[in-house]
Amino acid sequence: MNEFTVNSFEEYLTTVRNNLGIVEKNGKRVRRYFRGQAKRAFEGFDLKPSIGRYTHLNSLPPAERDRRENEVLETFSNHLLTYVNHLPRNDWEALTIAQHHGLPTRFMDWTTNPLVALYFACRDSKKDKDGNPHDSAVYVLISEPPRFSELRRQQKNGGASVEELESAAPVSGDDDGYDDFGLDESGEAPVLSDDDLDTTTATWPRTQPEPTKEGELSPFDISSNVIYDPPHVSPRIRAQDGVLLACHQPMQPLEENDVLKIVISQAAHDDIRRRLDQYGVFDKQLFPDLDGIAKWLKYRVFEINGMT
Protein backbone atom coordinates (compact mmCIF):
# COMPACT_ATOMS: atom_id res chain seq x y z
CA MET A 1 0.00 0.00 0.00
CA ASN A 2 1.35 3.41 -0.96
CA GLU A 3 1.48 5.53 2.20
CA PHE A 4 2.05 9.19 2.96
CA THR A 5 2.07 11.03 6.30
CA VAL A 6 0.93 14.63 6.59
CA ASN A 7 1.29 17.05 9.47
CA SER A 8 -0.85 19.98 8.33
CA PHE A 9 -3.89 20.95 6.29
CA GLU A 10 -1.77 22.42 3.48
CA GLU A 11 0.40 19.30 3.37
CA TYR A 12 -2.72 17.19 2.93
CA LEU A 13 -3.88 19.30 -0.01
CA THR A 14 -0.48 19.09 -1.67
CA THR A 15 -0.20 15.34 -1.07
CA VAL A 16 -3.60 14.66 -2.61
CA ARG A 17 -2.85 16.85 -5.60
CA ASN A 18 0.61 15.42 -6.28
CA ASN A 19 0.00 11.73 -5.60
CA LEU A 20 -3.36 10.85 -7.07
CA GLY A 21 -1.79 9.50 -10.22
CA ILE A 22 -4.36 11.13 -12.50
CA VAL A 23 -4.43 9.51 -15.94
CA GLU A 24 -6.37 10.12 -19.11
CA LYS A 25 -8.78 7.48 -20.39
CA ASN A 26 -10.99 8.11 -23.37
CA GLY A 27 -10.24 11.80 -23.07
CA LYS A 28 -11.38 12.01 -19.45
CA ARG A 29 -9.56 11.97 -16.15
CA VAL A 30 -10.10 9.05 -13.80
CA ARG A 31 -12.31 9.92 -10.85
CA ARG A 32 -10.92 9.19 -7.41
CA TYR A 33 -12.87 8.26 -4.30
CA PHE A 34 -11.90 9.03 -0.70
CA ARG A 35 -12.71 7.54 2.70
CA GLY A 36 -11.69 9.07 6.03
CA GLN A 37 -11.34 6.92 9.13
CA ALA A 38 -10.56 8.01 12.68
CA LYS A 39 -8.85 4.63 13.11
CA ARG A 40 -6.48 3.16 10.57
CA ALA A 41 -7.08 -0.25 9.04
CA PHE A 42 -4.36 -2.05 11.02
CA GLU A 43 -5.87 -0.70 14.26
CA GLY A 44 -8.87 -2.99 13.92
CA PHE A 45 -11.00 -1.06 11.43
CA ASP A 46 -10.35 -2.89 8.16
CA LEU A 47 -11.49 -1.48 4.84
CA LYS A 48 -14.58 -3.62 4.52
CA PRO A 49 -18.34 -2.97 4.47
CA SER A 50 -20.33 -3.00 7.68
CA ILE A 51 -21.71 -6.51 7.17
CA GLY A 52 -18.14 -7.78 6.93
CA ARG A 53 -17.49 -6.76 10.54
CA TYR A 54 -19.68 -9.58 11.85
CA THR A 55 -16.98 -12.23 11.96
CA HIS A 56 -19.33 -15.05 12.93
CA LEU A 57 -20.77 -14.84 9.40
CA ASN A 58 -17.48 -16.19 8.08
CA SER A 59 -18.47 -19.63 9.36
CA LEU A 60 -21.45 -19.70 6.99
CA PRO A 61 -21.25 -20.83 3.36
CA PRO A 62 -21.35 -17.85 0.95
CA ALA A 63 -24.76 -18.92 -0.37
CA GLU A 64 -26.21 -18.90 3.16
CA ARG A 65 -24.74 -15.47 3.91
CA ASP A 66 -26.27 -14.11 0.71
CA ARG A 67 -29.62 -15.71 1.59
CA ARG A 68 -29.65 -14.05 4.99
CA GLU A 69 -28.66 -10.71 3.53
CA ASN A 70 -31.46 -10.93 0.97
CA GLU A 71 -34.00 -11.89 3.63
CA VAL A 72 -33.00 -8.98 5.86
CA LEU A 73 -33.28 -6.56 2.94
CA GLU A 74 -36.70 -7.97 2.01
CA THR A 75 -37.97 -7.52 5.58
CA PHE A 76 -36.56 -3.99 5.70
CA SER A 77 -38.17 -3.14 2.34
CA ASN A 78 -41.55 -4.42 3.53
CA HIS A 79 -41.50 -1.77 6.27
CA LEU A 80 -40.47 1.16 4.08
CA LEU A 81 -43.96 2.23 3.06
CA THR A 82 -44.70 3.32 6.62
CA TYR A 83 -41.69 5.62 6.84
CA VAL A 84 -40.80 7.03 3.40
CA ASN A 85 -42.66 8.87 0.66
CA HIS A 86 -40.63 7.53 -2.22
CA LEU A 87 -40.00 3.81 -2.47
CA PRO A 88 -36.87 2.24 -4.01
CA ARG A 89 -37.10 0.85 -7.52
CA ASN A 90 -34.62 -2.01 -7.08
CA ASP A 91 -32.23 -3.68 -4.64
CA TRP A 92 -29.55 -1.05 -5.19
CA GLU A 93 -31.80 1.74 -3.97
CA ALA A 94 -33.22 -0.36 -1.14
CA LEU A 95 -29.71 -1.20 0.08
CA THR A 96 -28.82 2.50 -0.05
CA ILE A 97 -31.69 3.36 2.30
CA ALA A 98 -30.79 0.44 4.56
CA GLN A 99 -27.15 1.59 4.67
CA HIS A 100 -28.21 5.15 5.48
CA HIS A 101 -30.27 3.97 8.44
CA GLY A 102 -27.57 1.74 9.90
CA LEU A 103 -28.44 -1.72 8.60
CA PRO A 104 -25.28 -3.73 7.89
CA THR A 105 -24.87 -4.09 4.11
CA ARG A 106 -22.24 -4.91 1.50
CA PHE A 107 -21.95 -1.19 0.67
CA MET A 108 -19.01 0.98 1.81
CA ASP A 109 -19.32 4.76 2.12
CA TRP A 110 -16.89 6.83 0.04
CA THR A 111 -16.89 10.41 -1.22
CA THR A 112 -15.65 12.28 -4.27
CA ASN A 113 -14.63 15.18 -2.00
CA PRO A 114 -11.20 14.81 -0.31
CA LEU A 115 -12.09 17.47 2.27
CA VAL A 116 -15.15 15.52 3.38
CA ALA A 117 -12.92 12.47 3.86
CA LEU A 118 -10.49 14.60 5.84
CA TYR A 119 -13.38 15.74 8.05
CA PHE A 120 -14.33 12.15 8.90
CA ALA A 121 -10.68 11.31 9.59
CA CYS A 122 -10.17 14.22 12.00
CA ARG A 123 -13.56 15.19 13.45
CA ASP A 124 -13.27 12.94 16.52
CA SER A 125 -9.71 12.12 17.53
CA LYS A 126 -9.37 8.67 19.05
CA LYS A 127 -7.14 7.29 21.80
CA ASP A 128 -5.96 3.76 22.50
CA LYS A 129 -6.65 1.88 25.72
CA ASP A 130 -3.63 3.53 27.36
CA GLY A 131 -4.85 7.02 26.51
CA ASN A 132 -2.35 7.63 23.73
CA PRO A 133 -3.75 9.60 20.76
CA HIS A 134 -4.26 7.85 17.42
CA ASP A 135 -3.23 9.11 14.04
CA SER A 136 -6.07 8.86 11.53
CA ALA A 137 -6.11 8.19 7.79
CA VAL A 138 -7.72 9.07 4.50
CA TYR A 139 -7.82 6.24 1.98
CA VAL A 140 -7.89 6.90 -1.76
CA LEU A 141 -9.43 4.21 -3.96
CA ILE A 142 -7.03 3.67 -6.86
CA SER A 143 -8.21 0.28 -8.17
CA GLU A 144 -10.65 1.98 -10.58
CA PRO A 145 -13.78 -0.20 -10.17
CA PRO A 146 -16.47 0.10 -12.86
CA ARG A 147 -19.44 2.37 -12.21
CA PHE A 148 -22.93 0.92 -11.96
CA SER A 149 -24.47 3.59 -14.19
CA GLU A 150 -22.08 2.81 -17.02
CA LEU A 151 -22.50 -0.95 -16.64
CA ARG A 152 -26.27 -0.64 -16.77
CA ARG A 153 -26.14 1.71 -19.76
CA GLN A 154 -23.92 -0.67 -21.70
CA GLN A 155 -26.04 -3.64 -20.76
CA LYS A 156 -29.17 -1.95 -22.10
CA ASN A 157 -27.42 -0.95 -25.30
CA GLY A 158 -25.52 -4.12 -26.05
CA GLY A 159 -27.03 -6.95 -24.06
CA ALA A 160 -23.64 -8.09 -22.75
CA SER A 161 -23.35 -10.26 -19.68
CA VAL A 162 -22.57 -8.75 -16.29
CA GLU A 163 -19.11 -10.37 -16.28
CA GLU A 164 -18.27 -8.97 -19.73
CA LEU A 165 -19.42 -5.51 -18.74
CA GLU A 166 -17.45 -5.48 -15.49
CA SER A 167 -14.25 -6.36 -17.29
CA ALA A 168 -14.74 -3.90 -20.16
CA ALA A 169 -16.48 -0.89 -18.64
CA PRO A 170 -14.71 2.46 -18.69
CA VAL A 171 -14.08 3.85 -15.24
CA SER A 172 -13.30 7.46 -16.01
CA GLY A 173 -15.36 10.24 -14.49
CA ASP A 174 -15.87 13.92 -15.09
CA ASP A 175 -13.37 15.01 -12.45
CA ASP A 176 -11.18 13.81 -9.65
CA GLY A 177 -13.31 15.41 -6.92
CA TYR A 178 -10.46 17.73 -5.96
CA ASP A 179 -10.25 20.67 -8.37
CA ASP A 180 -12.67 22.88 -6.45
CA PHE A 181 -10.61 22.58 -3.29
CA GLY A 182 -7.01 22.89 -4.51
CA LEU A 183 -4.49 25.60 -3.73
CA ASP A 184 -4.64 28.54 -6.11
CA GLU A 185 -1.59 30.11 -7.73
CA SER A 186 -0.85 32.20 -4.66
CA GLY A 187 -0.74 29.10 -2.49
CA GLU A 188 -3.86 30.13 -0.58
CA ALA A 189 -6.85 27.85 -0.19
CA PRO A 190 -10.28 29.20 -1.19
CA VAL A 191 -12.89 29.71 1.52
CA LEU A 192 -16.38 28.30 1.05
CA SER A 193 -19.53 29.87 2.41
CA ASP A 194 -22.47 28.03 3.89
CA ASP A 195 -24.28 28.36 0.55
CA ASP A 196 -21.59 26.56 -1.44
CA LEU A 197 -22.86 23.11 -0.50
CA ASP A 198 -26.17 22.30 -2.14
CA THR A 199 -28.33 20.06 0.05
CA THR A 200 -31.30 19.61 -2.24
CA THR A 201 -32.63 16.12 -2.64
CA ALA A 202 -33.84 14.11 -5.59
CA THR A 203 -37.14 12.27 -5.68
CA TRP A 204 -38.24 8.93 -7.03
CA PRO A 205 -41.47 7.89 -8.72
CA ARG A 206 -43.97 6.58 -6.23
CA THR A 207 -43.84 2.91 -7.21
CA GLN A 208 -43.71 -0.34 -5.32
CA PRO A 209 -40.17 -1.66 -4.79
CA GLU A 210 -39.21 -4.26 -7.36
CA PRO A 211 -36.57 -6.96 -7.07
CA THR A 212 -33.78 -6.70 -9.58
CA LYS A 213 -35.07 -8.30 -12.77
CA GLU A 214 -33.48 -11.40 -14.22
CA GLY A 215 -30.49 -10.47 -16.34
CA GLU A 216 -30.10 -7.03 -14.78
CA LEU A 217 -27.21 -6.04 -12.57
CA SER A 218 -27.71 -7.08 -8.96
CA PRO A 219 -25.62 -6.02 -5.94
CA PHE A 220 -25.76 -9.67 -4.83
CA ASP A 221 -24.49 -11.17 -8.09
CA ILE A 222 -21.62 -8.88 -9.10
CA SER A 223 -18.25 -10.58 -9.62
CA SER A 224 -16.13 -7.50 -8.85
CA ASN A 225 -16.49 -4.32 -6.79
CA VAL A 226 -18.75 -1.68 -8.37
CA ILE A 227 -19.10 2.04 -7.68
CA TYR A 228 -22.74 3.08 -7.16
CA ASP A 229 -23.83 6.73 -7.24
CA PRO A 230 -26.89 6.57 -4.96
CA PRO A 231 -30.07 8.59 -5.31
CA HIS A 232 -30.34 11.34 -2.73
CA VAL A 233 -32.35 9.45 -0.14
CA SER A 234 -31.08 11.97 2.40
CA PRO A 235 -29.68 15.51 2.26
CA ARG A 236 -26.57 14.04 3.88
CA ILE A 237 -25.66 12.05 0.77
CA ARG A 238 -25.68 15.15 -1.41
CA ALA A 239 -23.93 17.33 1.18
CA GLN A 240 -21.18 14.75 1.63
CA ASP A 241 -20.75 14.02 -2.11
CA GLY A 242 -21.34 10.41 -1.16
CA VAL A 243 -20.85 7.33 -3.32
CA LEU A 244 -21.08 3.67 -2.38
CA LEU A 245 -18.74 0.81 -3.17
CA ALA A 246 -20.68 -2.42 -3.66
CA CYS A 247 -18.35 -5.20 -2.53
CA HIS A 248 -18.63 -8.58 -4.19
CA GLN A 249 -16.75 -10.20 -1.28
CA PRO A 250 -18.14 -8.23 1.67
CA MET A 251 -16.44 -10.36 4.32
CA GLN A 252 -12.99 -9.56 2.95
CA PRO A 253 -11.16 -6.21 3.33
CA LEU A 254 -9.97 -4.38 0.27
CA GLU A 255 -6.60 -5.43 -1.06
CA GLU A 256 -3.63 -3.24 -0.17
CA ASN A 257 -3.04 -2.41 -3.84
CA ASP A 258 -6.61 -1.10 -4.11
CA VAL A 259 -5.89 2.01 -2.04
CA LEU A 260 -3.42 4.75 -1.29
CA LYS A 261 -3.21 5.77 2.39
CA ILE A 262 -2.65 9.27 3.72
CA VAL A 263 -1.88 9.16 7.45
CA ILE A 264 -3.04 12.29 9.30
CA SER A 265 -0.84 13.08 12.28
CA GLN A 266 -2.93 13.38 15.45
CA ALA A 267 -1.02 16.52 16.42
CA ALA A 268 -2.53 18.26 13.36
CA HIS A 269 -6.16 17.36 14.07
CA ASP A 270 -7.11 20.52 15.97
CA ASP A 271 -5.74 22.85 13.31
CA ILE A 272 -7.25 20.77 10.51
CA ARG A 273 -10.67 20.99 12.14
CA ARG A 274 -10.37 24.78 12.28
CA ARG A 275 -9.26 24.96 8.65
CA LEU A 276 -12.11 22.72 7.50
CA ASP A 277 -14.51 24.95 9.41
CA GLN A 278 -13.15 27.91 7.41
CA TYR A 279 -13.72 25.97 4.21
CA GLY A 280 -17.35 25.32 5.07
CA VAL A 281 -16.72 21.63 5.69
CA PHE A 282 -18.24 21.23 9.12
CA ASP A 283 -21.05 19.47 10.94
CA LYS A 284 -23.88 21.82 10.03
CA GLN A 285 -23.17 21.46 6.32
CA LEU A 286 -22.40 17.75 6.14
CA PHE A 287 -25.31 16.78 8.38
CA PRO A 288 -28.12 19.16 7.31
CA ASP A 289 -30.48 18.14 10.11
CA LEU A 290 -30.81 18.60 13.86
CA ASP A 291 -27.99 16.15 14.54
CA GLY A 292 -25.68 18.31 12.45
CA ILE A 293 -26.76 21.52 14.17
CA ALA A 294 -26.10 19.93 17.57
CA LYS A 295 -22.69 18.61 16.51
CA TRP A 296 -21.77 22.01 15.05
CA LEU A 297 -22.76 23.89 18.23
CA LYS A 298 -20.94 21.32 20.35
CA TYR A 299 -17.76 21.96 18.38
CA ARG A 300 -18.09 25.75 18.20
CA VAL A 301 -18.93 26.24 21.90
CA PHE A 302 -17.33 23.38 23.80
CA GLU A 303 -14.59 21.83 21.68
CA ILE A 304 -12.91 24.53 19.60
CA ASN A 305 -10.77 25.69 22.54
CA GLY A 306 -9.49 22.20 23.23
CA MET A 307 -12.25 21.24 25.64
CA THR A 308 -13.68 17.70 25.50
Rank of each mutant, 00 (worst) to 15 (best):
residue 7 N to K: 11
residue 8 S to Y: 00
residue 9 F to K: 04
residue 13 L to M: 10
residue 13 L to P: 05
residue 13 L to A: 06
residue 14 T to Y: 07
residue 15 T to L: 01
residue 17 R to C: 15
residue 19 N to R: 02
residue 20 L to A: 06
residue 20 L to F: 08
residue 21 G to D: 01
residue 22 I to K: 10
residue 22 I to E: 09
residue 25 K to C: 11
residue 27 G to F: 02
residue 33 Y to N: 03
residue 35 R to M: 03
residue 35 R to Q: 05
residue 36 G to R: 02
residue 38 A to K: 05
residue 38 A to P: 10
residue 41 A to M: 03
residue 42 F to H: 15
residue 43 E to K: 13
residue 45 F to M: 15
residue 46 D to Y: 15
residue 46 D to L: 15
residue 49 P to M: 08
residue 50 S to T: 14
residue 52 G to R: 06
residue 55 T to Y: 11
residue 57 L to F: 06
residue 59 S to T: 12
residue 60 L to E: 06
residue 61 P to N: 00
residue 62 P to R: 07
residue 62 P to T: 07
residue 64 E to L: 10
residue 65 R to V: 07
residue 66 D to A: 12
residue 66 D to H: 09
residue 67 R to A: 09
residue 67 R to D: 10
residue 68 R to Q: 14
residue 69 E to Y: 00
residue 72 V to W: 06
residue 75 T to M: 13
residue 75 T to I: 13
residue 77 S to C: 04
residue 81 L to H: 13
residue 83 Y to P: 00
residue 84 V to W: 11
residue 90 N to E: 03
residue 93 E to R: 01
residue 97 I to S: 00
residue 99 Q to P: 02
residue 101 H to S: 06
residue 103 L to E: 09
residue 105 T to Y: 03
residue 111 T to M: 02
residue 113 N to R: 01
residue 115 L to I: 01
residue 122 C to P: 06
residue 122 C to N: 04
residue 127 K to V: 14
residue 128 D to C: 00
residue 129 K to W: 05
residue 135 D to R: 08
residue 136 S to G: 09
residue 138 V to M: 01
residue 140 V to H: 05
residue 143 S to G: 03
residue 144 E to T: 12
residue 146 P to H: 00
residue 148 F to K: 14
residue 149 S to K: 11
residue 150 E to T: 13
residue 161 S to K: 08
residue 164 E to Y: 13
residue 165 L to K: 04
residue 166 E to M: 12
residue 166 E to F: 05
residue 166 E to L: 12
residue 167 S to D: 14
residue 168 A to E: 14
residue 173 G to A: 01
residue 173 G to I: 00
residue 174 D to Y: 12
residue 175 D to E: 10
residue 178 Y to L: 15
residue 184 D to F: 07
residue 194 D to L: 10
residue 194 D to A: 14
residue 199 T to M: 07
residue 206 R to S: 13
residue 208 Q to P: 10
residue 209 P to S: 01
residue 209 P to I: 01
residue 211 P to L: 03
residue 212 T to S: 13
residue 214 E to S: 13
residue 219 P to C: 07
residue 220 F to K: 05
residue 221 D to L: 11
residue 221 D to Q: 08
residue 222 I to R: 02
residue 223 S to Y: 08
residue 225 N to V: 02
residue 230 P to K: 00
residue 230 P to R: 00
residue 230 P to E: 01
residue 233 V to Y: 15
residue 234 S to N: 11
residue 234 S to F: 04
residue 235 P to D: 04
residue 235 P to I: 06
residue 235 P to S: 02
residue 236 R to M: 04
residue 239 A to G: 03
residue 242 G to M: 01
residue 244 L to T: 05
residue 245 L to K: 02
residue 246 A to K: 09
residue 248 H to Q: 07
residue 250 P to N: 01
residue 253 P to W: 03
residue 256 E to V: 09
residue 258 D to L: 04
residue 259 V to F: 00
residue 263 V to L: 13
residue 267 A to E: 14
residue 270 D to I: 03
residue 271 D to Y: 06
residue 275 R to T: 04
residue 278 Q to V: 11
residue 279 Y to T: 15
residue 282 F to M: 14
residue 285 Q to A: 13
residue 286 L to V: 01
residue 287 F to I: 07
residue 293 I to W: 08
residue 294 A to D: 02
residue 295 K to T: 10
residue 296 W to N: 13
residue 296 W to R: 06
residue 297 L to K: 08
residue 297 L to W: 06
residue 298 K to N: 14
residue 298 K to V: 12
residue 300 R to Y: 07
residue 301 V to P: 08
residue 303 E to R: 15
residue 303 E to I: 11
residue 304 I to M: 12
residue 305 N to L: 15
residue 306 G to I: 11
residue 307 M to Q: 15
